[in-house]
Amino acid sequence: MSVERVMVVRRPLAEVVAYLEDFARTEEWDPGTLSCVRLDDGPVRPGARWRNTSRFRGRTTELRYELVVQEPARLVFVGENRTVTARDDLRFAEEGTSTRLTYSASLAFKGFARLAAPFLRGEFEGLADGVVARLPAAAAAWRP
Rank of each mutant, 00 (worst) to 15 (best):
R74F: 05
V6Y: 08
D40A: 06
S54D: 00
R38N: 02
A14K: 02
V9D: 05
L39G: 13
R55S: 06
R87T: 06
F119C: 05
G42Y: 09
R100A: 01
V78L: 03
R45F: 10
P118V: 07
E4P: 09
R87E: 13
E66T: 14
P144A: 14
L39P: 11
R91M: 04
G122R: 15
D30W: 02
E123V: 04
L135Q: 09
V69L: 02
F56Y: 15
W29P: 02
V6W: 14
R5E: 14
T102S: 12
V8P: 01
P31A: 08
A86G: 14
V132I: 00
A133R: 15
W142Y: 13
E62A: 15
L107Y: 02
E15V: 02
T53H: 07
A86M: 15
L101G: 09
T99S: 11
T102G: 09
V68T: 12
E125M: 05
V69M: 02
R64N: 03
T60S: 03
F124H: 03
S35W: 06
T61F: 06
S98C: 11
A140G: 08
G42A: 13
G96E: 00
A141D: 10
L20T: 02
Y103S: 04
D41Y: 08
Y65R: 02
G32K: 01
A86Y: 13
P144F: 14
L101Q: 04
N81C: 11
L63R: 08
L39V: 08
G122D: 13
V16N: 00
V76T: 13
A137N: 08
L115S: 14
R5S: 13
R51A: 15
N81T: 09
D89C: 05
L115K: 15
T33S: 02
A117G: 12
V17N: 12
A117V: 14
L67D: 04
R25P: 09
E123F: 01
R45D: 10
D41I: 04
R25N: 10
A113K: 15
N81L: 10
W50D: 13
R49K: 11
F56P: 10
V76L: 12
R45A: 13
A14V: 04
E125C: 01
L90I: 15
V3F: 00
R87K: 04
R91C: 10
R82T: 05
A24E: 13
A138C: 14
A138P: 10
A18E: 05
A14I: 00
R25V: 07
V68M: 03
T102A: 08
F77W: 11
P144S: 12
E4T: 13
G126V: 07
Y65S: 08
T85I: 10
T60R: 06
S106Q: 02
T61Q: 11
E94M: 02
T61L: 09
A105E: 12
F77H: 08
P72W: 03
V44I: 07
A18V: 01
F124G: 01
L90P: 15
C36H: 00
E27I: 10
R59A: 01
V76G: 08
T60A: 05
R87I: 03
R121T: 11
R59V: 00
E95L: 09
V132T: 01
G47E: 12
G130D: 07
V132R: 00
G122M: 14
G96A: 00
G111E: 02
R121Q: 14
E123W: 05
W29R: 02
R134A: 10
N81V: 03
G122H: 14
G79W: 09
A113W: 15
F23Q: 09
L63I: 11
F77I: 06
E62P: 13
D129W: 05
